[in-house]
Design a protein around this nucleic acid. Sequence first.
RNA 1: GCGGCGGUCGUCUAGCCUGGUUAGGACGCCGGCCUCCCAAGCCGGAAAUCCCGGGUUCGAAUCCCGGCCGCCGCACCA
Length: 574
Amino acid sequence: MYVGDKYDKIVELARRRGFFWPSYEVYGGVAGLYDLGPLGTLLKNRIVDKWREWFVRRHQDLVVEVETPIITPHKVLEASGHVKHFTDPIVECLKCGRRFRADQLVEERLNIKAEGMGVDEIGRIISEEGVKCPVCGGDLSNVRLFSLLFTTTIGPYSHDIGYLRPESAQGMFTSFKRVYEAFRERLPIGIAQIGKVARNEISPRQGMVRLREFTIMEVEFFFDPENPSCEVLGRCYGKLRLLTADARIKGVDKPLELEVMEALENGVIKTPWTAYWMCVARNFISDLGIPENQMYFEEKLPNEKAHYSAQTFDQLVRVSRWGWIEVSGHAYRTDYDLSMHMRYSGQDFRVFKRYEEPLTVKTQKVVINKALIGRIFKERSSNVINAISSLDVNTLRTLLTSDEEYVRVEEYLIPKNAITIQEVTEKISGKHIIPHVVEPSFGAERILFVVLDNSYSEEGDRVVLRLPRSLAPIQVAVYPLVNDEALEVRAKQIYEELVNKGLYVVYDDSGSIGRRYARADEVGVPIAVTVDYQTLEDSTVTLRDRDSRTQIRVRRDEVAIKILSFLANSLNIT
RNA sequence: GCGGCGGUCGUCUAGCCUGGUUAGGACGCCGGCCUCCCAAGCCGGAAAUCCCGGGUUCGAAUCCCGGCCGCCGCACCA
């Protein structure tokens, strides 16, 4: 289908025709940063729209979309664990240049606990104990911290540290209660967000596949851990291609194909909602033109998982240059994030779960006669009351059954008649739970590259970008067959009409007709309208299909409707 | 961050070894002519900080050093 290195050709095409190129090229460029050009921006927008269609619009009874800031205060990422888990103490061998986790090195060499030690302390231990490079024996550099978080300051005070978010998820967790209330306290609920994130990768390569700044599209889907079933699982059809962690450990590298229900019953996927969103992810990627045999889900091994995840699957797609690359991650984050934010913020992120039938529970309640205590103990009364309250009912009951008139609680002698134990029946209408979260998360630019890689083809000496019609940045091309005023006028009218239908259209009258078809094919324009001399006689034009290169002649007044149905895949030109 | 290789019009490249060119070509692009359907032809045009900085030299795209960027391998990739 193509010759030579496809990746190089795609990159060359991307620069030349305006899909993407390295940012700040005029200053030498910065690794991991890319500009999207005019066509790249259109294509990315179509991918983003399609994601929104699959994950939000089609689930509008379950999922809502929000937008939260990129700049994130220190406290938020401290709570989420990113400050800790994104920052490693690192030493470098001054001789061979290899880098090591300083704390791990100290633990291995000296068999002491180094985790959580400060940089200075680890550095002191390394120099005092004479720890050397474990590979070449060279001297080690000073210990420094390396964080994948981009740091900034908020406002004029340099101690107000902020970060560029490394994922959009924390914005959804911190606003969870608001969204939950605004959406009338429904569970399950998904909160979606599309936006930029930044990760200060040590050494980004692989072009659009590993960026320091990219667009993430993710859903935090909150559900009741006591009722994790997915009521829309019936919407899933077809098999998932899965490679489990167990299989990977055994050295298996071929995914198995399982029905969703099978995968859940076998325990391969731990939660129904993860399985459900994996199905949607498969459908979404298929919808971008990626064949199903070119994708599968791979379960992460325990040491590969993020700190917050109980189970993670990555969705992999095959590309020409690098083989299988990740286009989405599906993490079961449990209640990790909400719990951490509860602890750090002091706010209550639990939701009230109403029982179907209120429970009637008989309990025993300690009633303290505070008036009596007050009269006796005066200013010490609250200490006394606290002391009594800290005892459980059974202990108190035992104390009260003694023959004495007083009971001793801590250093206080309290008259028995100040304390009574009552049987009460309480009605409990529900309880508080912390929702669990499953998270499907996609990188938009990476998917953009995957789409280009998948669509790129060569026909003889010409390039045809076989983009799905619904993704094409430019949807229609309009041409006069030759340079002739009469033809140009007609063609321009058609151009105007199609623009007014909401389409992205290109008009081109430069060069031979073959050259213009080739120009359009190269950027994936799916259909072309050509005005020729016959148009002047009988008001018909030709429509040409990019992929089959065949043409049909249609009436001038049917052009727009035919093109719209062609773009909607309900008309084919063969 | 380490090692290897590379960086010349928009793109692909010649030139570099052996220092002195108006830095050449092709494709693409723009304008004109021609052309009744798949990168035809003819004429003209615009287009290169030779990646950046420093050094050697009368003179550097070319030699040397440092940096940046890219690819590959290692390390890293929540």
